[in-house]
Amino acid sequence: QTVVIGDTTYHLNNPEAAQQIAKELAKKYGLKVVISGNTIKLK
């Protein structure tokens, strides 16, 4: 699972954790979560 935040890319072996982290950050910073395949992007 790949999480992309701005110009930073994180690789996590746990998809659920990756999605949870993405949701928390999106909520905290008012970002939009875009999931395509096994890549999660925060914009």
Rank of each mutant, 00 (worst) to 15 (best):
K32S: 13
T39R: 04
I40Q: 00
A18D: 02
G30A: 06
L31N: 04
A18P: 02
Q19D: 06
V4R: 07
N38L: 06
E24N: 09
V34Y: 10
G37I: 03
I5M: 06
N14R: 03
V3M: 06
V3N: 01
A18Y: 10
Y29K: 03
H11V: 11
Y10R: 01
G6V: 06
E16W: 10
A26L: 13
I40V: 06
Q19Y: 14
K27F: 08
I40D: 01
N13Y: 09
I40P: 01
S36A: 08
K28L: 10
K23H: 12
G6L: 08
V4Q: 11
Q1S: 12
A26T: 03
I35D: 01
Y29L: 07
L25E: 00
A17D: 12
K43M: 15
L31P: 02
I35E: 01
V33Q: 00
N14V: 08
K32G: 06
L42S: 01
P15C: 14
V34G: 01
G6K: 04
Q19F: 14
L12Y: 14
K28I: 07
Q1H: 14
I40C: 01
I21G: 00
N38G: 08
K28S: 02
A18Q: 02
K23Y: 14
A22K: 02
L25G: 00
E16Q: 09
L25R: 00
T9W: 11
Y29R: 04
I40E: 01
D7R: 13
L12D: 02
A22V: 08
L12T: 06
I35T: 03
T39L: 07
T2R: 08
K41M: 15
G30M: 06
A26H: 05
V3G: 02
K32P: 04
Q20P: 00
L25A: 00
G30S: 03
L25D: 01
A17E: 13
K32R: 06
K27R: 10
P15Q: 09
G6E: 05
T8E: 06
Q20W: 14
K23W: 13
E24I: 14
T9A: 07
V34L: 07
G30F: 06
Y10D: 01
V3Q: 02
Y10I: 14
A22N: 02
L31G: 04
I35Y: 07
V3C: 12
I21S: 01
A26D: 03
I21V: 09
N38S: 08
G6I: 09
T39S: 06
I5E: 03
A26R: 06
K23M: 12
S36C: 15
A22R: 01
K43Y: 15
Y29D: 05
Q20M: 10
I5C: 14
T2I: 13
T39H: 05
E16T: 09
I5T: 02
G30I: 02
Q1L: 15
Q1E: 06
A22F: 09
I40N: 00
N14A: 06
A17K: 10
N38Q: 06
I40S: 00
P15V: 10
V4H: 07
I35P: 00
A26S: 07
Q20N: 07
V34D: 06
V3E: 01
E16A: 11
A22P: 00
N38R: 01
Y29F: 09
L12E: 01
V3T: 03
K27W: 06
K23T: 11
V33H: 01
T2F: 13
G30Y: 05
A22E: 02
K28Q: 06
T8P: 05
Q20A: 12
D7K: 14
H11T: 07
I40K: 00
K32A: 12
Q19G: 05
Y10N: 03
T9I: 13
T2L: 10
T9C: 03
T2W: 14
Q19K: 09
K43D: 10
G30T: 03
S36I: 13
V3A: 03
T8I: 13
E24V: 11
K27Y: 08
I21F: 15
E16N: 07
G30L: 05
V33W: 06
N38E: 02
I5S: 03
I35W: 05
L31T: 04
V34S: 07
A22Y: 07
T2M: 11
K32W: 08
K27N: 07
L12R: 01
A22S: 02
T8F: 14
G37R: 01
T2N: 08
K27S: 08
V33A: 02
D7P: 07
A18C: 08
K27L: 12
A17T: 13
N14T: 13
K27A: 13
S36V: 13
Y10A: 03
I21N: 00
I5G: 03
H11E: 07
I21C: 15
G37D: 05
T9R: 08
I35L: 06
Q20F: 10
E16D: 09
V3R: 00
D7M: 13
V34T: 10
L25W: 07
K43A: 11
T39Y: 06
H11K: 05
V33K: 00
N38D: 08
E24R: 13
G6N: 07
N14E: 06
T8S: 07
A22Q: 02
H11P: 03
S36E: 14
G30Q: 05
K41I: 15
K28T: 03
V34E: 12
L42D: 01
N13G: 10
L12W: 12
A26N: 03
N38C: 03
T8V: 14
E24G: 04
V4T: 11
T39K: 05
A17Q: 12
K23Q: 13
Y10G: 03
K32Y: 11
L42H: 02
I21T: 02
G37L: 04
A17Y: 10
V3F: 10
K23I: 11
Q20T: 10
E24Y: 15
S36L: 11
Y29H: 08
Y29V: 04
D7E: 12
K43G: 10
V33M: 11
G30W: 09
Y29E: 04
S36R: 06
L42M: 03
Q1V: 15
K23N: 12
P15L: 12
G37F: 05
V34Q: 06
K28Y: 11
A22W: 09
V33T: 01
L31S: 03
G30H: 07
Y10S: 02
N13F: 08
N14D: 13
L25H: 00
I21D: 00
T39E: 10
V34I: 12
N14H: 08
T9H: 07
H11A: 05
P15M: 13
Q1W: 15
H11W: 12
G6F: 14
I21W: 15
V3W: 08
D7S: 13
N13V: 09
A17W: 10
I21R: 02
S36Y: 11
Q20H: 10
T2C: 15
I5V: 07
A22G: 04
Q20Y: 10
E24H: 14
T8N: 10
K43R: 09
N14P: 08
A17H: 09
T8R: 14
G37T: 01
L31Q: 04
T39N: 05
K28H: 05
G6Q: 05
V3S: 03
L31I: 09
E16H: 08
K27T: 10
I5Y: 09
V34K: 02
Y10H: 03
T9S: 08
N13C: 15
K43N: 08
Y29G: 03
K28C: 12
L12P: 01
P15H: 11
A18G: 02
P15F: 14
Y10T: 02
T2E: 04
A26M: 09
L42F: 10
I35A: 02
Y29P: 06
G6M: 08
K41H: 15
K23A: 12
I5R: 03
N13M: 11
K43S: 14
I35G: 00
L42C: 07
T9G: 02
G6T: 03
E16Y: 10
K32V: 15
G37A: 03
L12M: 10
G37M: 04
N38V: 03
A26P: 00
D7L: 12
L42T: 01
V4E: 07
A17P: 01
E16F: 09
Q20G: 03
T9K: 08
T39F: 05
G6D: 05
K41E: 14
K28F: 07
G30P: 05
H11N: 08
S36M: 11
A17C: 11
L25T: 00
Q20V: 07
K28A: 04
V33E: 01
T39M: 07
L31W: 10
K27E: 14
G30D: 04
T39P: 00
N14K: 04
N13D: 13
K23S: 10
P15K: 10
V4C: 15
N13R: 09
T2S: 09
V4W: 07
I35S: 02
T2P: 05
I40T: 00
V4I: 12
N14G: 07
T8K: 13
T39V: 12
N14M: 08
I40L: 04
N38I: 03
L31R: 00
L12N: 01
L25F: 05
V3D: 02
T39A: 04
G37P: 01
K41F: 15
T9Y: 09
I35F: 07
I5P: 03
K27G: 04
Q1G: 09
A18H: 04
